[in-house]
């Protein structure tokens, strides 16, 4: 098939077919998408795409997977509005419109040779899955590799099968915690911040990447700094309203920054200069 170059500047979406879809939890739905023209998405972990359905609308959704050999990519969609509700009604075989990938992703290059710590709060695990997959594919690029995942309750955990596989790996330090659990639950119960003092690796050599609700980030940042992780090696991914994904509509402004262009990934140092950020 001739490869037509995709125009990154265009408003015109290209199409991807849903090859697999299933509910991950009661509210989140998983999608595996295959570009119809055969060209891989080419994303950096942490980037997002603008997903659309004709007649419905368009919305930004984080990419939940790292580039792979099959050329597919994954999305996890929570039903919160117009486009996401319509996506929940789609079926395998249907196609959606995609623009992207957009945004500044996780700083995978500047984390090389360092102790990588990934901290996921709730739905924050979705974009971080792309980073975890990337890290595990290139495990030798990092010294230690730790993942902390906090969910509200066991039923709300995402990617349950992969969590088990990740926990079983000898080359990763994987901790899961929940805020509340039914009696009989054998796992760790408690806030994610309580796990930080027990991280492997040297704090000064650590790169910490945190994605979760704003209030969680505030507390995690405090603990990480207290633990000795440098401010310019702590990163977060922020969520803002987006209509275009390409720095034009203005909705994602945080002070003078555009979340879709300078973000969604920002360092703690950058965030300290953006008072509106958290």
């Amino acid at each position: 098939m001739t490869q037509q170059a995709r125009d990154p500047d265009s408003w015109t979406p290209w199409r991807a077919r849903i090859t697999e879809t299933a509910m991950l939890t009661e509210t989140e739905r998983f999608f595996r998408l295959e570009p119809i023209d055969g060209q891989a998405l080419g994303q950096v972990p942490g980037q997002f795409v603008q997903v659309c359905l004709p007649g419905i609308g368009e919305a930004p959704i984080s990419v939940a997977s790292a580039p792979n050999e099959e050329g597919t990519f994954d999305l996890v969609v929570r039903k919160v509005g117009n486009l996401t509700e319509a996506l929940h009604r789609t079926v395998e075989g249907q196609s959606v419109g995609i623009r992207g990938p957009f945004g500044r992703g996780f700083p995978v290059d500047s984390c090389r040779g360092r102790d990588l710590v990934i901290i996921a709060g709730g739905i924050g695990l979705v974009p971080l899955r792309s980073l975890i997959q990337h890290g595990l594919m290139h495990r030798n690029r990092f010294k230690s590799f730790s993942v902390l995942y906090g969910a509200k309750r066991p039923a709300e955990m995402l990617f349950k099968e992969e969590l088990i596989a990740w926990q079983g790996r000898p080359d990763t330090d994987f901790h899961i915690t929940v805020d509340v659990a039914p009696s009989g639950y054998l796992g760790h119960v408690g806030l994610i911040t309580t796990l930080i003092p027990y991280l492997e690796g040297s704090p000064a050599d650590t790169s910490a990447i945190v994605v979760g609700p704003p209030v969680m980030f505030r507390f995690v940042l405090r603990e990480l700094l207290a633990h000795g992780v440098p401010e310019d090696h702590i990163w977060a991914s922020l969520e803002r309203h987006m209509k275009c994904g390409i720095g034009q509509c203005g909705h994602c402004q945080i002070n003078g920054a555009l979340t879709c262009r300078e973000g969604p990934v920002f360092s703690a140092q950058e965030l300290s200069r953006l008072p509106e950020a958290i």
């Binding site: 007649g55 419905i56 609308g57 509005g81 117009n82 509700e85 319509a86 009604r89």
Partner: peptide, 11 residues
């Protein structure tokens, strides 16, 4: 009416 037919959320 268009929203009801297409499934788009009415804003």
């Amino acid at each position: 009416v268009s929203c009801l037919i297409t499934g788009r959320k009415f804003r």
